[in-house]
Nucleic acid binder design. Structure first.
Lengths: 354, 354
DNA sequence: CTCGTGGAGTGTTACGTATAACGTGCTCCG
DNA sequence: CGGAGCACGTTATACGTAACACTCCACGAG
């Protein structure tokens, strides 16, 4: 009615409320205690509501030097784990008026372009998940933004903070469960990805098995897909003596392992036990349902964003203020026992798994 | 070395190259033909590279009045379909220097907040997928941004364009496949969501079945999860006479249906056929693999972003310029026949499905 | 010789916001 | 009674970029 087509500015609001533009800014940012009378403040709010005023974020960002936007680097969103990670970051971000923009990391299919060119939005900080060191170096070149690492090697990064899942403990729980059921010949299907999280899984499993006095597990790499899991499982189940349990780095691999086992005429879990990792929705869609490790992905994403916000708050103070230089948070994970594990064949049932 | 801590600006580059700030802008935007000599242009580029200059996007957005950022509204990213949708939009967006920020639509769990407050970034346009009319109205209130609808009711929106998947045809293909196998008693497990895409599925299935001279399919609503599919299937399979095929609105529901069938002692597909929709990675993880309809999600997302970019390009011309007011694109879908469908029991095999 | 034309640049301004710096009156207390 | 301090505001400026409006000069046509 009054305005001519384009979005109203704070000056339009000021005119409508009969005050200066500065007063509008004060009132709308809530900094008017003792600077603007309650009456005028209310008039400003009414005018803003009336006109449908929304502050121009570009102008605000320019003025403040902050954009209230974070970059989340993930290998692939089609993986439910990373989607949950994103949900956690986005939730916490929204609570603080932040936005999150995604960047599929260079390990994906796309051309390894500069994330800071790709993300047209200016950024305040970066959260990087499950990154290889090479990709990290690329990020490093992208300026001196605060960086939070998720589920990554804590060492040799310039991260302001690291949020990790207790992957090693998860794998130890898997091993304890299977060993407790009586399994002695475990095999490991590990993801064909050079990433800290998968290296830890392999190491933890091997250590737990060794500690129990068993021979080290056979291991086969596999592409992180159902088909990959099938191929690896076919190989492993051809070994003699055949392993009685297949420990998989991921639920997708476990799904493939189950398929492969059945194609070989083996029943799961009677003839061979299978465990997954991540507790995707896939885990309960399968039959039998997968025994797997539940990872608090949303929680990890939320914690990562909180850490980033904390780092942003502490910006400007060069000296190390509170705590160490790089804080590491580790979130607990929990084995979820379902139907894909059982005592090995030719063994009298023994009490208790785990 | 030369600069004092903060990011270099175009003025810093200008100083280093011995030209004016305006010249830097011209050169770096590639608009210098006949305005700046090749020698100086090269000097500017060298200085920019040397200083690691990156244009301040906030300032650019403020100046241009455009932010090169689009909002993608999806119900949930943890659903692989929407993740693929996002991948498509993000890919095309990146090709044009655009960013994409996500907003989980009000139908999700979160508090139904204003997407334009939540997305701290300013926006040039909106792509909304699978939205109920209520949520649409909320978007409508959010200003007069160009809007592209994905997989939604074409009518009564002010969308600049609509990109739809040929859902109806997909369901017709499912019906033809099952009817061709000899099935006569179909049942439908439909998603408990008030959304155009699911209404179309129900209508198309009913029409196809009626056209074949069969009685209309039994139908049960279900929450869009594996557990929801199980409950609905348990109900439907208790009917007498028992349906010989369960048509599901989604692969998750189909997974649940398979589980339920087996718990009742029925084999899939020998005793009962099951079909899904969407072709999630879940479809090939199950056993038997699901017969389902493959939706070109990435392609749809890409097409949506292209439509939005086109609408943005045509902004400023009030009169309807090229084509109709709201263009509707429909992408084809394809039935993928796998192992979860077979001729009904007590029926001699007949040649050909579909 | 004058004028037009186009290349090569620069000065200046505006985008919309947040805030520092600067007034006003007015009250209250030493 | 003379400020000091407070309540209430406004003016002015800067953030970094893009682009309009100029200037200046060389050169060729008339």
């Amino acid at each position: 009615m009054t305005s001519d087509r384009s979005r109203p500015t704070s000056r339009d609001v000021a005119r409508a409320a009969g005050v200066s533009q500065a007063a509008v800014s004060l009132v709308l940012r809530g900094k008017w205690r003792g600077r603007v009378s309650p009456g005028k403040a209310e008039a400003v709010r009414a005018a803003a509501r009336e006109l449908g005023y929304r502050p121009n974020q570009a102008a605000r960002s320019l003025r403040l030097g902050r954009t209230r936007t974070a970059l989340l680097v993930v290998p692939a969103l089609t993986n439910e784990f990373f989607a949950r990670l994103h949900a956690g970051t986005a939730r916490v971000a929204a609570e603080h008026g932040f936005g999150v923009v995604l960047y599929p990391s260079p390990e994906g299919v796309g051309p390894a372009r500069d994330p800071f060119d790709s993300a047209s939005a200016a950024l305040d900080g970066v959260i990087a998940s499950s990154m290889a060191s090479e990709a990290l170096a690329a990020l490093h070149a992208g300026g001196d933004l605060p960086l939070v690492m998720l589920d990554s090697e804590p060492e040799r990064t310039r991260a302001a903070a690291t949020v990790n899942l207790d992957i090693a403990d998860g794998m130890r729980q898997v091993a304890a469960h299977l060993l407790g059921l009586g399994h002695r010949r475990l095999a490991h299907i590990f993801a064909d990805v050079d990433s800290w999280t998968f290296r830890v899984r392999a190491k933890a499993l091997a250590a737990a098995v060794r500690a129990a006095g068993c021979e080290p597990p056979l291991a086969r790499p596999a592409a992180l897909t159902v088909a990959g899991g099938m191929r690896a499982a076919r190989d492993l189940l051809a070994a003699d003596p055949r392993p009685t349990a297949l420990v998989c780095d991921d639920d997708l691999l476990a799904a493939g392992a189950c398929k492969a086992a059945r194609r070989l005429g083996l029943r799961v879990p009677e003839d061979v036990s299978v465990t997954g990792f991540d507790d995707l929705s896939l885990a309960t869609a399968l039959e039998p349902e997968l025994t797997t490790v539940r990872l608090p992905a949303e929680e990890a994403g939320a914690a990562g964003m909180r850490a980033l916000l904390a780092a942003l708050g502490a910006t400007g103070v060069p000296g190390g203020a509170q705590g160490g230089p790089a804080e590491v948070t580790t979130l607990p994970v929990a084995l979820t026992v379902r139907g894909s594990t059982a005592p090995p064949p030719d063994t009298p049932a023994r009490p208790g798994g785990r």
